[in-house]
Computed example of a mutant assay.
Amino acid sequence: MSRMVLIKLIIDLVMTILMLVEMAYYITGNRVHENVGVTLLGLFIAHIFLNRRWFSSLLQGKHNFRRILQIGLNILFLAAMAVMMVSGILISSDLFPFIPVKNDMIFRQMHVQMAYWGFIIMAVHIGFSWGMILNSVRRMTGITGISRIRTMGLRILAVLIVFYGVYASFEREIGSKLTIYNPFGSWSNDDSAIKFVIDYLSIMGIYISGTHYALKFVQQQGQRQI
């Protein structure tokens, strides 16, 4: 694995972790939320810079179904993150309190809803690259052979994560948070940081697994038609 690929993977991993921390606003508090948000903004800019060749090659090469989907997804993710971060700066009360904003409730609504949309799109984005991520992990750990038992075990784990993720999605009312803004949110006093992480990782698992296996299915269908 090249040094640049490793740097990209580390940045993407840290961004994913920080995005989870950002979703836990009621656990971390506002000051931590804003500081992590600024760090996430810096890493997002670094991510774009390291992948700048992708933008210059948008109109080059063959545009098959997978590539068109990925381009559309990346543009949506870029837009969601941009709106989330700009609105976050405008409603800041700790780091940027000097920015005067009227009708900040509108920006709060944009910030919260784009955060949830960005979270979902990020998971789908990871799903597109999941095969590459697995291959990188195999090379790093020295796993070269194919094991049916390991493959079956990972697939069973994926199914369990998806089932729990669906349950957590309903419990956390993710669907309504994508469409309806509630300034007070829905939070349980009994909720713990560990349960929050498990729930949101499982919710991510729905979209990572779903995207990964859907793309594999489409690829297999295409190979059968050749």
Results as ranks from 00 to 15, higher is better:
residue 66 R to G: 05
residue 165 G to V: 02
residue 8 K to F: 08
residue 136 S to C: 08
residue 162 V to P: 00
residue 135 N to G: 08
residue 33 H to A: 11
residue 170 F to Q: 07
residue 205 G to P: 05
residue 104 D to S: 07
residue 166 V to T: 06
residue 4 M to Y: 11
residue 129 S to C: 10
residue 166 V to E: 02
residue 165 G to E: 01
residue 70 Q to S: 15
residue 142 G to E: 11
residue 169 S to T: 15
residue 160 L to W: 01
residue 5 V to H: 06
residue 65 F to I: 11
residue 221 Q to S: 09
residue 163 F to S: 08
residue 102 K to W: 05
residue 141 T to Q: 04
residue 69 L to Q: 07
residue 180 I to K: 12
residue 177 K to C: 09
residue 17 I to Y: 07
residue 79 A to C: 14
residue 28 T to R: 02
residue 50 L to D: 09
residue 212 H to A: 10
residue 38 V to R: 00
residue 181 Y to Q: 06
residue 42 G to A: 13
residue 156 I to F: 14
residue 174 I to P: 01
residue 93 S to G: 12
residue 203 I to N: 01
residue 69 L to S: 09
residue 194 I to S: 11
residue 36 V to F: 02
residue 13 L to F: 15
residue 134 L to P: 00
residue 195 K to L: 14
residue 173 E to S: 12
residue 32 V to E: 05
residue 51 N to T: 14
residue 120 I to N: 02
residue 174 I to M: 13
residue 79 A to S: 13
residue 176 S to C: 06
residue 89 I to N: 00
residue 59 L to P: 03
residue 179 T to F: 15
residue 34 E to G: 05
residue 123 A to L: 03
residue 114 M to P: 00
residue 220 Q to L: 11
residue 133 I to D: 00
residue 224 R to V: 08
residue 53 R to N: 15
residue 196 F to T: 01
residue 21 V to I: 14
residue 32 V to H: 01
residue 160 L to H: 02
residue 212 H to W: 09
residue 27 I to S: 05
residue 148 R to W: 13
residue 96 F to M: 10
residue 223 Q to A: 15
residue 108 R to G: 05
residue 140 M to D: 04
residue 150 R to T: 06
residue 201 L to P: 01
residue 60 Q to H: 12
residue 8 K to S: 11
residue 111 H to P: 04
residue 115 A to C: 08
residue 85 M to Q: 01
residue 187 W to P: 01
residue 126 I to M: 09
residue 44 F to V: 03
residue 217 F to Q: 05
residue 92 S to F: 09
residue 35 N to R: 03
residue 172 R to D: 10
residue 20 L to N: 01
residue 154 L to A: 13
residue 159 V to G: 03
residue 133 I to F: 14
residue 163 F to N: 03
residue 189 N to C: 03
residue 83 V to T: 05
residue 7 I to T: 14
residue 196 F to M: 07
residue 144 T to I: 04
residue 114 M to G: 00
residue 200 Y to E: 01
residue 192 S to G: 11
residue 41 L to N: 01
residue 77 F to N: 04
residue 184 F to K: 08
residue 192 S to M: 07
residue 117 W to K: 02
residue 153 G to A: 14
residue 197 V to I: 15
residue 185 G to V: 12
residue 11 I to V: 15
residue 13 L to Y: 07
residue 184 F to S: 12
residue 132 M to L: 14
residue 174 I to F: 07
residue 71 I to S: 08
residue 87 S to Y: 00
residue 148 R to D: 05
residue 18 L to N: 00
residue 103 N to I: 12
residue 172 R to C: 11
residue 116 Y to F: 13
residue 138 R to V: 03
residue 92 S to P: 10
residue 166 V to H: 02
residue 35 N to T: 03
residue 42 G to P: 09
residue 197 V to T: 05
